[in-house]
Simulated assay, not measured.
Amino acid sequence: MSLTGSPRPADSNRAFGPKGADDIASTASTAPDGKPHHDEVDVIVDAWASVRPGLDTTPLEVLSRISRIARRLDQARNAVFTEHELDGWEFDVMSALRRAGEPFELSPGALVQKTLVTSGTMTNRVDGLERRGFVSRQPSPSDRRGVLVRLTPAGLRAVDAAFDALLHHERRLLAGMDDDARAHLAASLRTLLTAVES
């Protein structure tokens, strides 16, 4: 992945955005009546209830929280990639190659499918990764005119190091949940994602 050029976080908590993980966990807001809210979504839902009392705002209870979590995760992941001098799109391409197993290679078409970008965008991304020495183009043994994109040893080291750091940060985000709670949440989110994607 390429250098982002953005400044590195001052400390590990910066990977969680403007506030550290502990700050986020302890943050609470207060309503006008003095009763504490658990999070900002409660504030939003209560505000809508006060101006539109007959409106069913229950979807916000789930989807607004998912939206806010997604923004926090983007901040966390971008910070991790920046620490490893990578861009997110570079990690996406290299991790797709890494997951393919040895010899860590895929066709450009397979990479397009796995990363959900256009073929033109993928060509540019492979060019950039090749310039950095993270991937190489190899002739396809089954198609004389085709090529395969292969992860180099340098690319393998880079993607593994970034992924290890990413998992470390994301374990911290989930540290307040026990195994059963995480499994239940994963199952619920799987059900929701299946419904949304269908």
Rank of each mutant, 00 (worst) to 15 (best):
R71G: 12
T121C: 04
S26Y: 02
R144P: 14
R65Q: 07
G5C: 05
V62P: 00
V51A: 09
L173N: 03
E85K: 08
G109M: 09
S26K: 09
M1Y: 04
D143P: 11
P103E: 07
L129H: 01
E40T: 11
F16P: 02
S107L: 09
E40N: 01
P18R: 13
N78V: 10
A25P: 03
G120W: 00
R125N: 12
F163W: 07
E197C: 07
D74H: 13
D127P: 00
D42V: 08
A154G: 07
V135G: 02
R52M: 15
V45F: 06
D42T: 09
A76H: 04
D23T: 09
L156N: 05
E61F: 06
S119E: 15
L156S: 10
M1E: 07
R182S: 08
F81S: 07
P103G: 04
V41G: 04
M94P: 01
S142Q: 15
S188R: 15
S29W: 13
D127R: 09
A79P: 06
P9T: 09
A162N: 02
Q75E: 15
R68A: 12
E90V: 11
A154T: 12
G20A: 08
P32M: 02
K35F: 00
A195T: 10
E83R: 10
L193K: 15
G155D: 04
